[in-house]
């Protein structure tokens, strides 16, 4: 497979084409992914999430700088929302990372959510594999950052940085509501702003309520100012230690296993739905079913159960 081979060689243009192939759900997508799959699993994947204006892109820019000093090849997937009305999008995250535009070992790909909820795009998972197979050592996913539904990044990343800033107000509410589960490491950015210390104390308090006494298992909190390039070294050291910790304790392996489980479930569901759709011609029949429900007062469960029974029966006969 020509495109796949070029991706494996790290050919920049081909990586770009491969990601587009996935984004546009082209027919050759499945073959491409399966071709690359055996070469995946080497890269470390970090998710960066947090509300808009938290300084995620600037923070990522500074992380790239540190990782490049260590000689690592870094791939970034920065997700921005698509307009629900036009389907278009402005992808502006890389603006803050343009420092690295001349560096061949930094690959930034902006991705529109294209209607997918959960803070990432449908194509994000497979795009990670492309970077992984192409030999990137570290892959950073920057989520949209619209709030509390951004849990999907947990399923894709080995560890998640939850970026918080003082003055937003609603963050603590989110923490209390359980969103804290998303983060492995808590980053309090804009530490030079008023209220940063207070936020630190609040986060610490919320985490203490929910966590064990064992210090080692506690989620770290790091203060940074991405704009002033302060606290970044602490953050890098912190997630490096964290990687070591989850590697040694099999946590990483479990996470990755869980990721495959999710992936199997996901692909399976998609495939089944699409098969059933095709078999039952749902698109054609949907109007009839609506009529059945509206006029003949058939309940939706009754109707669907009947259709599925029929599907299984016919399927067996085949």
């Amino acid at each position: 497979m020509e495109l796949g081979d070029k991706v494996l060689k790290g050919h920049i243009r081909s990586i770009g084409k491969a990601i587009s192939c996935i984004e546009n759900n082209r027919p050759e997508k499945e073959q491409l992914i399966d071709y690359l799959y055996p070469f995946c699993g080497k890269a470390e994947v970090i998710g960066v999430t947090g509300s808009p204006g938290a300084g995620k892109s600037t923070l990522v820019d500074k992380l790239i700088k540190r990782e490049r000093k260590l000689g690592k090849k870094v791939g970034i997937i920065a997700v921005d929302p698509s307009s629900p009305f036009s389907g278009g999008a402005i992808l502006g995250d890389r603006l803050r990372m343009q420092n690295h535009a001349s560096d061949d070992d930094v690959y930034i790909r902006s991705m529109a959510s294209r209607g997918h909820l959960g803070g990432i795009a449908t194509a994000t998972a497979d795009a990670i594999k492309i970077f992984d197979a192409a030999g990137f050592d570290l892959i950073i996913i920057e989520t949209i950052g619209v709030g509390q539904t951004e849990i999907e990044v947990m399923d894709l990343a080995d560890l998640v940085l939850l970026v918080l800033v003082p003055g937003m107000g609603d963050e603590i509410q989110a923490l209390k509501a359980g969103i804290m589960e998303i983060g492995d490491i808590y980053v309090i950015n804009k530490k030079d702003h008023d209220g940063a210390q207070k936020l630190y104390a609040e986060v610490e308090y919320v985490l203490n309520i929910n966590q064990s006494e064992n210090d080692k298992e506690k989620n770290p909190i790091i203060l940074t100012s991405a704009n002033l390039d302060e606290g970044i070294d602490d953050l890098v050291k912190c997630y490096r230690d964290y990687f070591k910790y989850i590697r040694c304790n099999n946590i990483l392996e479990e996470k990755r296993k869980k990721r495959i489980v999710n992936e199997i479930n996901h692909i399976f569901t998609e495939k089944i739905i699409s098969e059933v759709n095709q078999f039952l011609h749902i698109e054609k029949k949907i109007n009839q079913w609506v009529k059945n429900i509206l006029h003949e007062k058939v309940g939706p469960y009754t109707l669907i159960n009947k259709k599925i029974e029929q599907f299984i029966k016919e399927f067996k006969e085949q």
């Binding site: 204006g53 600037t58 820019d61 402005i90 502006g92 603006l95 803050r96 420092n99 390039d229």
Partner: peptide, 10 residues
Amino acid sequence: FGEYQESIVL
């Protein structure tokens, strides 16, 4: 001093 990094919200 370093250089300024543009900050735009489009």
